[in-house]
């Protein structure tokens, strides 16, 4: 059906622009911080090229500075990034007609932001679309890292912070139109937020565990609000 309307690489890259706007300055901050902590340029680039996970890269710099052992940093990274399992699983049910050989490349670029944009893209998801989207984000992340390390702080601090805040605004801008799709969506989002706050504040769970527990619990509770067939139109 509507094969000619399947989103392609170009559509993905265009949809990635709002992510690039946020990633570039945040990656610059990473590059600059890496230099400050004493990480070489090659290592800073490698972090962004092969790990490609903002929060965990910043955490790694923090832990390196504090002299934490590599094994512990890797474990903390694992816990922080477990949430991507849920995101990757959620993307899987919407991918259609994809060559299996492309999946390892598509999977590499699953971040909070690319997942969010892709999840609320109307219609089916294709591998070229995701490659364009993830590729745009990746280029901005790596480019920002290089620029931050080599050039340092060129943007005034308030501009840099505002661009970083733009990523959270992006989440809100993505979520709002989605809420119109079905009545339970707002309840699911609010419940997830509330659970995250409660878990991260009042239990010993780390931020990573709190996040994944809140997402799973709210989505499971959401099953009760989502009627059969609702939200299946994009399938």
């Amino acid at each position: 059906m509507d094969r000619e309307k399947q989103p392609g690489f170009r559509d993905g890259a265009v949809d990635g622009i709002p992510i690039m706007v946020g990633y570039f300055p945040v990656a610059m901050a990473f590059g600059l911080l890496a230099k400050t902590v004493g990480v070489t340029f090659a290592d800073a680039c490698l972090f962004s090229l092969v790990v490609f996970a903002g929060a965990s890269q910043f955490m790694a710099l923090d832990l390196i500075k504090a002299g934490i052992a590599a094994v512990d940093i890797v474990l903390a990274t694992f816990l922080l990034n477990l949430r991507h399992m849920m995101m990757s699983a959620a993307l899987a049910v919407r991918l259609r007609g994809v060559r299996r050989g492309l999946l390892p490349i598509v999977a590499f670029g699953v971040t909070d932001e690319t997942f969010s944009v892709a999840s609320f893209k109307p219609g089916g998801l294709t591998a070229p679309y995701l490659l364009g989207l993830n590729g745009a984000a990746y280029v901005a992340w790596f480019g920002g890292t290089v620029a931050g390390y080599l050039v340092g702080q060129v943007l005034p601090a308030a501009v840099q912070s505002s661009l970083g805040i733009g990523l959270y605004a992006l989440f809100a801008a993505i979520l709002v139109p989605g809420l119109k799709k079905h009545a339970g969506a707002l309840a699911i989002a609010l419940l997830a937020g509330l659970l995250y706050l409660l878990l991260s504040r009042f239990t010993p769970l780390s931020s990573g565990w709190s996040l994944i527990a809140a997402i799973i619990a709210a989505a499971a509770a959401g099953l009760a609000t989502l009627k059969d067939g609702a939200g299946e139109e994009e399938a």
């Binding site: 969010s116 809100a172 419940l191 997830a192 995250y196 099953l223």
Partner: peptide, 9 residues
């Protein structure tokens, strides 16, 4: 339901 929950969190 995951995308709504993930964005909320």
């Amino acid at each position: 339901c995951i995308p709504f929950a993930a964005l909320g969190a």
